[in-house]
Design a binder for these strands. Structure first.
Lengths: 325, 325
DNA sequence: CTCACTTACGTGACGCGTAAGAATC
DNA sequence: GATTCTTACGCGTCACGTAAGTGAG
């Protein structure tokens, strides 16, 4: 089987069954009856020459091959949906550049970057697409946006990116906290403090991004409460025995009488990147990325942003997806 | 249209038409007659609500949306083929790890890496898949291999990777060349010399990878002849007014009486990476990558490989596709 | 016995092929 | 007028639904 008679229907059916592990419920979800679904999966297995599920009449279970196909099928189906979306968008919004951003997550660079891009000859109109934490990369993958400005890009699957700025990450502590008086702190000193996390992220992820999980002994570290947004996160820190980690620019945007910011010497910087789908080949995206890197170089050049913002390697004329020169 | 009635058949048909720009030839290629193909494309356009081609009865031309769909369709179809291949391979070769390598392209690390991986408890048998220049990444994307050891990974689309070693890249010159006596060279001094290229690569790419194209004035630079393999490349340099660029380890493997190696101070290093499909989540792949980074750390640690090989940032316990800490 | 999956069978829709029509060079 | 794409029409296949069968709890 060379895959030339495989159809998306087969994959949609298989995903439903693999997720439900139950043919009846899967069939309901697909809006068909069980028998055709059974037959479809059987045919698929026969064509692939592979057992995908071990079925007892009572319950179904995925084989290794089945788990592989589930993961791959989701990828293919996502790619197909993105294909449709990008195609329709290419026709409807020809000559428009959609930029996915999170409000306030861009170290104040967005305005300058957009201005720099719009100054380029032949620039197309820019439209902003706002989204919550972590939604920007999903918007790129799904074909809802052409390019994104994101802080701390985490899952780069399917995306290319360039670092725009790396800012120091500060520990945010209650003013009367024992550690609040220090000039600088180390990760180790903060290891015992809970870190609040945010919707869509796990406590593990919050600590991981704060680089605390990478330290030995982090297993016994406490997990923090959940914060709905940034203001709430600051309130949580202001109330109790928590620490939060914010980029210098974000911390500066939200001053709070009860809180102090202390640099952490050995923590990873907070990185703002431009990102775009790996298969993107449009002139507008390339020029927006170039504009972002120019702005970043300019900002760094004039010693801006509290003096220790560092620029990403702005090899402006290398094509996307390139070796790191 | 949410894409839920799109099928791979539609994409296969569209790709054929978009590539041939001729319904008759496309139909022949697909093994059907023209009328169904015309209807299929029409239906597709109607469902997407988008014009994909502007047809005169004499010739067809792609619209912007059509170009987008062509690119996206290839991606979806490749993903579907890879899905089939990975699924069948998961069943047939359960518990086997296929490593794609180019003979001699790995700075001599392959044996150590494989040994380090096989020493891990629970390691599965390793199989080597040899391929020519640049084929390794294609093998990963197509699902023929699980992991690859590649030099100068260029197109990272769909792949994650970690740098194993970065070696200095040397200029290879004929012994009696005027520049051959220098202790070190700069890219600028070599700009006027042609660079031979290899099958599957363009002269542009050869120069680009030598970082010569990044210099101002590179447009007027001469293009070199084509070399079928490494030995032939060295012969070309030994014969004429050419320069080639090799990593220190590769150059050391192929000594040649008429050639000398001169370090180039401002050239990019030659980078050996481990790469794997971004969606890979298998334990074997993760452990192979970890083993590679351990070996790299060990090699660097004992000051091996001519003393200036540098290790990639081996953050061994971060998950794939992570922020660059 | 019940419930879930499979096998059997009839029907309808969809896609293919042949044939005829329209438009460009 | 030749060539290429489109429209028209008949047919076969394939996937669906209903109904009956099988096996595990």
């Amino acid at each position: 089987m060379n895959g030339s008679d495989l159809e998306l229907r087969d994959l949609r059916y298989f995903v439903a069954v693999a997720e439900e592990l139950n043919f009846k419920r899967a069939a309901e979800r697909l809006g068909i009856t069980q028998p055709p679904l059974s037959r479809a999966i059987q045919t698929l297995e026969r064509r692939l020459g592979v057992a995908l599920l071990i079925r007892t009449t009572r319950r179904a279970e995925l084989t290794d091959a089945g788990r592989t196909l589930l993961r791959e099928s989701r990828h293919v189906l996502d790619a197909a949906e993105a294909a449709v979306r990008r195609t329709t968008r290419a026709a409807q919004t020809a000559g428009e550049l959609v930029v996915a951003v999170k409000p306030g997550g861009h170290a104040g660079l967005l305005k300058d970057i957009v201005a720099a891009y719009e100054a380029v000859p032949g620039a197309v109109p820019v439209r902003m697409a706002l989204g919550g934490w972590g939604e920007q990369s999903a918007m790129l993958r799904a074909g809802h946006a052409d390019v994104a400005l994101v802080r701390d890009l985490f899952d780069t699957r399917g995306l290319d990116h360039e670092v725009v700025v790396a800012e120091p990450r500060l520990a945010v502590l209650r003013r009367d906290h024992p550690l609040a008086g220090a000039d600088v702190l180390t990760r180790r000193q903060l290891l015992h403090l809970p870190v609040p996390y945010w919707p869509g992220a796990s406590p593990r992820l919050a600590r991981y991004r704060a680089a605390l999980d990478l330290l030995p002994g982090a297993e016994e570290a406490p997990r923090g409460p959940r914060a709905a947004d940034l203001v709430q996160l600051l309130e949580i820190v202001a109330m109790g025995e928590c620490v939060a980690f914010l980029s210098a620019s974000t911390a500066g945007q939200y001053p709070h009488a009860d809180l102090v910011h202390v640099p952490v010497v050995d923590i990873s910087p907070s990185v703002v990147s431009v990102a775009w789908p790996q298969e993107a080949r449009s002139r507008a995206v390339a020029e927006f990325v170039a504009a972002a890197l120019r702005v970043a170089a300019r900002e760094t050049g004039r010693g801006e942003a509290r003096g220790d913002t560092t620029r990403g390697d702005a090899h402006g004329d290398t094509p996307p997806g390139d070796a790191p020169w």
